[in-house]
Amino acid sequence: MNRSRHRALSAGITALTLTFGVTTLTEPAYSAEPSSNGNGANTEQSGGGDGTGIYAAARITYSGSVAKNGGSGNVTSADVNWTPPPCWYAPYLGAKDFKKKMSKDIESQMSAPGMGGHAGAALSELQRHYEDDYGWTDTPGYQDYNVEKDGEGMFWAAVENPDEPDILKRSSCNDLPFWVENGQAPPPQYEEAITPETLAALAYQHMQLPDTEVSLAPEATTKVNLPTWAWLDKAVFDEVQATAAINVPGLNLQSTTTAKPVSLKLEPGTKDAETYPASGECVINDNGSIGEPYAKGKADETPPCGIKYLRSSGEGTFKLQATITWDITWEGTGGAGGDLPDGTFGNEQAVTVQEIQAVNR
């Protein structure tokens, strides 16, 4: 029997048994809710057993620097084609705990009304797979749930990324739970098995970046055809890191994702405006700042980073969008590492633009 049959059995059981929480785990996939109190605090939520032997299918420890001043928010990938993994396989239960849970779930479902025919046969086949060594071409069966090997490995199972909006993608990891010896890699056919790069992507997904509120001169209210200087001090924003880790018997993985600010994009909120430079992209200076603060005597100079509005905002305001682009890299267990897509994060600022009033005598 080939693997496609194995997948069909797994998917069929999930569909037939709404409370069957092994093929797709119902426990939290990971804990990743960094603090956003603006104090640069770290959040650490450790995983591990919950008293029932369940390791929450890789509940991930998250810790990361957050906004040092003001609020914060999640980074957005500049690559619209890149998304964090929708699902993955990770350690779930030891042999004895897995047997206890599976036996209880199967017994409960077998005794439910209407479980004859195909549904009952599927559950019977699943029971044989874990109890009587009934396997398939590339998926060997297990004798008594591998309880003789308890402590020597763990059953791995699929974990859905709760932040993935597409339910089909979330449930695409639909193989039955499988055994992995401590210290060994999962079989190669499980391409979605959790890796340091998976953790790096999850850290990226939950990375908190500081609000992008630029300093302006004139501040808040400016004049038509008057250059408005814009800048960000290095003290306002800096490198941000987020770490995701999984630590369960037989598996210890960790990845740190680092975001470094590289440029500021200004969008005036109206087509009737000019930006400095013309692209609206202000690059980071050697000292880590962006732009240049306005100082007395520079009124006739062109700002290295700024805006000139060509018409009044009337009784309203223009919504200046200031967005920082972050260069994002990661390093993980075993020397793994590399680049992730640039990230962006920004916010709007209200700018009032008034006509210059001329006095005729």
Rank of each mutant, 00 (worst) to 15 (best):
G151P: 01
M110F: 03
S263T: 00
I324H: 02
S263Q: 12
W231N: 14
N252F: 09
E33I: 03
S108E: 13
L123H: 08
D97Y: 04
R170L: 01
W231C: 01
A29D: 07
T137M: 11
G73W: 06
P86A: 15
M154V: 01
Q321N: 12
R170I: 05
D50F: 06
T61C: 00
I290G: 02
K234N: 08
T352R: 14
N2Q: 04
A78N: 11
S111A: 15
T76L: 08
G40D: 09
A41E: 06
A11Y: 02
M115H: 12
P261M: 07
T43H: 04
F98V: 05
G141H: 13
Q321C: 00
I307V: 15
N182M: 03
S63Y: 05
L16N: 12
K296D: 08
D175C: 05
N2A: 09
D144Q: 13
K149V: 01
A259G: 05
E213P: 00
D211Y: 13
S10K: 01
K99C: 05
A58R: 04
G21N: 15
K296W: 12
V159Q: 10
Q208V: 00
V159I: 09
L176K: 09
G114V: 04
G40Y: 06
P249Y: 05
V240T: 12
S215H: 08
L93R: 15
D132W: 04
S313Q: 05
P210F: 02
I106Q: 11
S63D: 09
S124M: 11
T83I: 06
N287E: 15
P187A: 13
A295P: 00
E239G: 03
I60W: 02
P34L: 02
R7F: 11
W229V: 05
P84H: 09
T329F: 01
H118Q: 13
D175S: 13
K223E: 14
N81V: 03
Y89E: 01
Q189M: 13
A278W: 05
V248G: 01
T43Y: 08
G314S: 03
A78W: 04
E44Q: 10
A299L: 08
E191V: 12
K100V: 03
K149H: 13
G53H: 02
